[in-house]
Simulated assay, not measured.
Amino acid sequence: MDSQTEMQGIVIVGEGVCEEVITRADAFGAVEAVFAAMARGDAYNFPVVREAIGHADALYGFKGGFDRAGLALGLKAGGYWPGNMDKGLTNHQSTVCLFDPDTGQLSALVGGNYLTALRTAASSSVSIAHLARKDAKVLGMVGAGHQSTFQLRAAAEQRDFEKVVAWNPHPEMLPRLGAVAEELGLAFEALTPEELGAEADVIITITSAFEPLLMADWIKPGTHIACMGTDTKGKQEVDPALLSRASVFADEIAQSVSIGEAQHAVAEGLIAAGDITPIGAVINGTHPGRSSDDEITLFDGTGVGLQDLAVASVAARIARARGLGEVVRLG
């Protein structure tokens, strides 16, 4: 046995262990660090594969990359099975495969469902930490699906919010957000999208919409918006004109202009790829971020494979150190 992977074996970290070992703070730190590494050129994402497989109406694909700084190499394999809810399963299913960057050997298999929700929330909360006004008091939530509660909990840790205002196309789903707000000691109110835009200092959109839900004229000066739902060609959550009014930041510019919220503004000629700043540049201090209290900032969070590898690496490391999960010896 001449490698660390051979000596330690492959650690298999299931969904339950992931929930036990990794915290929101862990996810925030991992995502922030990998965004910074991307902006420095120390980490890069591989091309995304995403296919309709012609069975069970499923979309299946791969996201991967290599973080030289964090020595995370691997991929997330998985997708969306729309019929899973009827089977008592989560529609999104994924697994992260981590490899030893020195040998190419498989080092860990990590459940990706919980970690995907955690890393997506960490992404928007990183943007809030670095771009939202320090005196932000009202958090706006557009969307009330499974991911929304993760978003709300993570965002609430970044500013001293006093109130949550929310809208969802299916209003019967809003009580789940109200319950989390109450648990966090925050006032909660359901509003129309226009009312939400007029009141919120920070807005998170987390829907699967294919049309704008927030119009540019509804957003007040100084607002920070994290657009987290658009990750596919054709999806859309906000008015393209909003991106021309805002300072736009993204996890990865290439994905932002092709499958992210910026795809529509770019297609209409309202902005260009050169108008978008990697959030990692703000983290690294090479871009100042917000320049005034009246500036509207917008983060286009498309979701990149390196986020998955970053949080999965933390989960695998902690699980191995605590003797959790299952270890399979090689050879």
Rank of each mutant, 00 (worst) to 15 (best):
A72L: 08
A319L: 00
V142G: 05
N45G: 07
P278F: 10
E157I: 00
I22V: 15
Q147T: 07
V34Y: 09
G64S: 15
L89N: 03
A267M: 06
E261Y: 02
P221R: 03
Q255T: 11
D57F: 00
H264P: 02
L191C: 12
A37W: 10
R68E: 11
A312R: 03
R50V: 08
D26N: 15
A241V: 10
F99W: 10
R24Q: 11
S313Y: 01
Y80G: 00
A39Q: 08
G280N: 02
M215K: 14
E326R: 14
G331C: 09
A56N: 05
V266T: 06
A27M: 10
L330Y: 15
R322G: 03
A117T: 02
F188P: 00
P193V: 14
S291T: 13
E157R: 05
R133I: 09
T192R: 08
A77R: 02
N284D: 15
F28M: 12
Y80H: 08
A315G: 01
A144N: 05
A181H: 03
A56M: 07
G269C: 14
R50M: 10
R50H: 10
R317L: 11
D217T: 11
Q151H: 14
G64E: 05
R153D: 05
V34E: 06
N113E: 15
G185S: 09
E183N: 01
Q236K: 10
T95I: 12
A122K: 01
K87C: 12
S124V: 09
L213G: 04
V248Y: 12
V304S: 03
G143N: 05
P193T: 12
G260K: 03
A281F: 02
F161I: 08
W218C: 13
H224N: 11
V48K: 10
V138L: 04
A117E: 04
K137P: 00
E268K: 15
D102A: 12
F150N: 01
D86R: 14
D160T: 09
A281Q: 02
G65R: 05
V138T: 13
D86L: 15
A254D: 14
V34S: 13
L177I: 13
M173N: 09
M85F: 10
